[in-house]
């Protein structure tokens, strides 16, 4: 696998889009790891009773999936900061798409700023964010 170096990165570059698995089994596994098992995340019917269209993906799972995407894009990098805004619900058992783009680079710090977006199956923006990614020398 080619390791992306800072010198390979340019403003405007896209990170490869990913469609993460947000099936009920994966979300339940995440909630178990997070000790964060609420019905709105792991039970469609219970989530509907709370007013959601179906069970929803926890915000911290969305953020963590984005981090994993960054690590696949730039293996060995260090994400110094990630800032995500959970704007709308992402539904469990739906198809969601993660995307990213380089919006700034800093030659001295050897960092790149990236925009991050998760789009829901119906086209809504579920999560937006930014991250500061530091590359190895």
């Amino acid at each position: 696998m080619k390791v992306l170096s800072y010198d390979d990165v340019e403003l405007g570059d896209d990170l490869p889009d990913e469609s993460p698995d947000v099936s009920m089994s994966k979300v339940t596994a995440f909630c178990t790891a997070a000790k964060h098992v609420f019905e709105r995340f792991v039970d469609h019917e219970a989530a509907r009773k709370e007013g959601f269209p179906a069970a929803i993906v926890p915000g911290i799972m969305s953020q963590s999936l984005l981090l994993a995407m960054i690590h696949r894009w730039a293996p060995g990098c260090t994400v110094r900061k990630i800032d995500t805004v959970f704007r709308g619900s992402l539904l469990v058992d739906s198809n969601v798409t993660m995307s990213g783009a380089v919006t700034d680079t800093d030659d001295e710090a050897r960092t790149a700023e990236v925009d991050l977006v998760i789009t829901a199956e119906d086209g809504r923006t579920g999560v937006i964010g930014t991250a500061v990614v530091e590359f190895k020398d």
């Binding site: 993460p20 698995d21 994966k26 596994a29 995440f30 178990t32 790891a33 997070a34 000790k35 964060h36 911290i60 799972m61 953020q63 963590s64 999936l65 981090l67 994993a68 690590h71 696949r72 293996p75 060995g76 994400v79 990630i82």
Partner: peptide
């Protein structure tokens, strides 16, 4: 692993730089 992480620094305890995933503290 539950985050879908594939970087060995976060999932392989024998890795020389084994460390917690950056989002670990969020929970």
């Amino acid at each position: 692993s539950a985050c879908g992480e594939t970087d060995e620094r976060f999932i392989d305890p024998s890795h020389s730089d084994f460390q917690a995933h950056p989002s670990f503290t969020t929970h």
